[in-house]
Design a protein around this nucleic acid. Sequence first.
DNA 1: CACCAGGAATGTA
DNA 2: TACATTCATGGT
Length: 210
Amino acid sequence: MRMVTMRKRLRDLYLELLARHGHQRWWPADTKYEVVVGAILTQNTSWKNVERAIACLKASGRLLPHAILDMQTQELETLIRSSGYYRQKAERLKLASEKWLELRRSRLGTNDLRKQWLSVRGIGRETADTILLYALERPVFVIDAYTRLFCSHHSLFEAREYDAYKCFFESNLPSSVPLFKEYHALIVEWAKANKNRQKEAGHRARNTGH
DNA sequence: CACCAGGAATGTA
DNA sequence: TACATTCATGGT
């Protein structure tokens, strides 16, 4: 398929998703730093559980990089317990907070910034790109399991490597932060709606089947 | 009871 | 490079 065709296809799919599901308002957070915290807490974890943890952090008045760094590890673990993997994530939050403060006044380009975040233990490609896009406003397309499913379902692209998918979207879409934010959020919404539909279909098959 | 959720690190071959 | 295992809570 020609490049031009793929670009139009990606654009049309975006407009379809937007018309069907509406503006998603991602990432839900009061501050940029809260985006970083949420990005780590939601690793392989439902957002519902993350919301509780973030609420606990807010209630304690310590949803700030210095406060996280000064806190006893065990205390931090207790606050974020509901998000699961709380030992790993407590450590990751501290390392990420250090990096956040370190890069606070830097003027690095997007690529160098990405390398900086990827060098933090506990921050992989998806989490790094989530931070870059939703907290640092960089035009980076976030890839997750849903994005791969979306590509496969619509016969858009097939690959194994994360960066291959990232390159596919970034080279076939205009480099726009609002667009990248919305598209990724819409793909997640599409996947969830898709899943609900399958669940409903299963119920109907059971009811009419017997 | 099993399975999954807005992943990443580590070890093995 | 390609898989398997581990980490842990809460919902279905």
